[in-house]
Write a protein that binds this DNA or RNA. Structure first.
Lengths: 205, 205
DNA sequence: TGTACATCAGTGAACGCGCGTTCACTGATGTAC
DNA sequence: TGTACATCAGTGAACGCGCGTTCACTGATGTAC
């Protein structure tokens, strides 16, 4: 029944957005072509006019996630000079990203990604690796600027940084938005950053 | 053809163990009755002699995970008196548990659990909640003993504790055992515990 | 500006596959007497 | 200790379902002249 025709670029965008919504609710494995089509007012087979298949949709979503994460890193670089401030802002952005678009959690933790195809798994590994690399770079710059203690590996710090968010985000997600992620993460950042910053002996924070 | 008969309790144990192995490789969603049956030398339909269905198998696995996590908490309580030492030991045990049995990661991050049935989701939430509660208790005892700073919420500390492991474990898993989780986690613990412990100088607050 | 044709985004029916689950059955094991 | 019967853990065939994907088609949109 008569969906009005749209140019393929338009449909691709619509479908990608719908995919994000669906994955937020049902997870990566729960991305059904049928539901996807319906939610943009098409018939399942119509999706194949715009994508080669389910995998191609997934790819686009993964690209989106990567873009968002990396854009955050770039953004905080322009917003602050102090490496620790940059990291703090990145933390907030990361939390906001996850809260606003739960699909991101699902993609990274997905089954699909986790076990299934070696290709997918490698894609996500690379994504996580790159993001961690960018975060580690921020820490390293902090070390060079004398703001961050030098007796810690930047990559370890980057992992800890992610660790400030991940369990809270997971629990938040499981509990259906009950947990105040932003607040908890902020508290965790305070403790973490304090222990990571070089102490200007006997001075205030 | 012709599997020798076994008592149902024996089969249940065999099946549960096989389920753990399978989930470690393919994830919770990848737990197939067929594969499960084959890996204990049975025919798919035979599984139904011992379990009501796929969900019942999942339930048993979930129970196992809960038991292991909680047993770890109990164990470290007997192994050390100092709350921080207990937490350190718990961290190591947690890492070992995950490394030795990857199914645990999959269960907690699973799709199945993540989106699908509200029941499953609630089960996992409760599991995580209880474990976090037990960890928070250790922190609280540390505060009462004057070993842990009092200006931080025990629950926040518990979340951070999990955060020391989770991202590392995830990356380790994605990269196919490349990352030295134990080492990285140990480094992270050093930084974390240092910032959480009360400093000999500024005793009380 | 109108006509002829190519392209393109839709449709619905059908196919195939994997998988969980059911069912009637069989032969081994356990139990009562 | 042997016999009769109940129970119980196997088997394989079949069913049903959800879902991704293909295909022949149609009517709208774009383009050449």
């Amino acid at each position: 029944m008569g969906a009005t025709k749209q140019r393929t670029e338009v449909r691709r965008r619509q479908i990608a957005r719908a995919a994000l919504r669906l994955m937020a609710r049902r997870g990566a494995g729960g991305l059904r072509i049928g539901a996807l089509a319906r939610s943009v007012g098409l018939v399942p087979s119509a999706v194949y006019r715009h994508f080669r298949g389910r995998d191609a949709v997934m790819d686009l979503v993964l690209d989106y996630v990567r873009d968002e994460l990396m854009a955050n890193v770039a953004a905080v670089r322009t917003q602050a000079r102090d490496p620790l401030k940059r990291l703090h802002r990145l933390l907030r952005r990361h939390v906001r990203l996850i809260v606003q678009n739960r699909a991101i959690l699902r993609v990274v933790f997905s089954e699909d990604v986790f076990g299934e195809s070696p290709r997918r798994r490698e894609q996500v590994r690379a994504l996580m690796h790159d993001y961690l690399g960018a975060v580690a770079e921020l820490f390293q710059e902090g070390q060079q600027a004398g703001r961050v203690r030098r007796d810690a590996e930047p990559r370890t710090l980057a992992l800890m940084f992610l660790g400030l968010i991940q369990p809270a985000a997971l629990l938040w997600h499981l509990s259906g938005k009950q947990l105040p992620v932003a607040v908890v993460t902020e508290q965790a950042w305070e403790i973490f950053s304090e222990s990571v910053a070089t102490k200007p002996k006997e001075e205030r924070r």
